[in-house]
Simulated assay, not measured.
Amino acid sequence: MQLADFDFELPRECIALRPVVPRDTARLLAVGAGLSDHRVEELPSLLAPGDLLVLNDTKVMPARLIGRRGSVAIEATLIAPMAPDRWRALVRPARRLKPGQRIDWAAGFSAEVVAKEPAGTIVLAFDRAGEELMAAIESFGAMPLPPYIKRPRGRDERDVRDYQTVFARHAGAIAAPTAGLHFTGALMQALAQRGIGIAFVTLHVGAGTFLPVTAARPEEHIMHAEWGTISPDAATAVAQAKAAGGRVVAVGTTVLRLLETAADGAGGVRPFTGETDLFILPGFRFRVVDRLLSNFHLPRSTLFMLVAAFSGLARIRAAYAHAIAAGYRFYSYGDCCLLEPAAEVPQP
């Protein structure tokens, strides 16, 4: 298996820079034995009563801060708390930063560079802590959009709304679970009326989502761990759906990875709290998830590898080629696909 197996050409005009409005009018490509074009609002008719949708209720922090060190503009993305006043961060430009230097954020608070770490991250100690610090971040931080979405420096209030699911509850992610961005209150109600169950899990999407695969052999790539939890109620909902003959539909790759991490060997999942670094490549045997709702992903990414593992690389290549030709919108603010699993999981 080579990294080049997961490459494809995407015209720049296919990249979505803003989501459609309303959210559930985004396009949906159903990928099974064939391909069929739909809208997300049609999802209830593409599923069956008794199926269970599992969604990620993580909440994205506005974790990107804009500031200055003297005359130098600084941009920091907070990626992990270390103490009530300290965060590990990705900082640009980082090369000339030194421990002891102060960064003044545009909102009037500041942080000191405590350490530069071997992995390229920087430890920042803020001039406030706990709830006071979190309030400042929530009020003045910008959403940590992926690098292919260009924005002027500073906070974009539309992104504060758009880059968050309507069911976000537990703060901690630095990237959105993008398949969940398509859901609206009206769609949730329509699903319930159709007899389709809904369960929530939490996986805080971390810095690893921004990291490209650089190893020529994907098996050598190291996944960063992300924290997640599956409640006893969610685990019970999965078991009951399976026992009644329903299908478990993961809304997003984050949900799929968490469910498969906690698989109990009998088609269900155990209650779980902890970190997962599960890396799914073609050849992986799925034990829990029966369908996957997912956005269209970057070439050579771990997420494209995951969907290729789920539905088969040839089928995914055909689906992506159809989507490009048909004018689907790609990536975080783009359209989505509803994937059936491959009958047999082939190696590329």
Rank of each mutant, 00 (worst) to 15 (best):
V213W: 08
E117R: 09
L303W: 08
R18C: 01
L306V: 14
A186E: 10
A225G: 10
A135P: 08
D290W: 02
A4V: 07
R315G: 02
L313M: 13
L338F: 01
A30P: 00
T236S: 15
C336P: 05
A225S: 11
A319N: 01
R27F: 03
R257Q: 10
K242H: 07
P271K: 08
N56Q: 09
E344T: 11
W87T: 02
Q189V: 04
T229D: 14
G197I: 01
L65H: 00
S311V: 05
R158V: 04
P299S: 07
E112D: 15
A215M: 10
D159S: 11
L43F: 06
H38D: 01
L303Y: 09
H322S: 05
A190S: 11
G180S: 11
R23V: 05
T209G: 09
K59P: 12
M143H: 05
P93N: 14
A323R: 03
G283W: 10
E117M: 15
L52H: 01
R285H: 13
V248E: 06
G267H: 12
D7R: 14
A266H: 11
F8Q: 06
E226N: 12
E117H: 06
E275Y: 13
T25V: 15
W227S: 15
Q240W: 14
R317Y: 00
L97H: 12
T121A: 08
I174E: 09
L28G: 06
D335S: 03
L281P: 02
P152S: 05
G70I: 15
A89Q: 08
S110M: 07
K242G: 07
R12C: 03
Y328D: 06
A83Y: 00
A186P: 01
K116L: 15
R151T: 01
A125E: 05
P146S: 06
D335E: 02
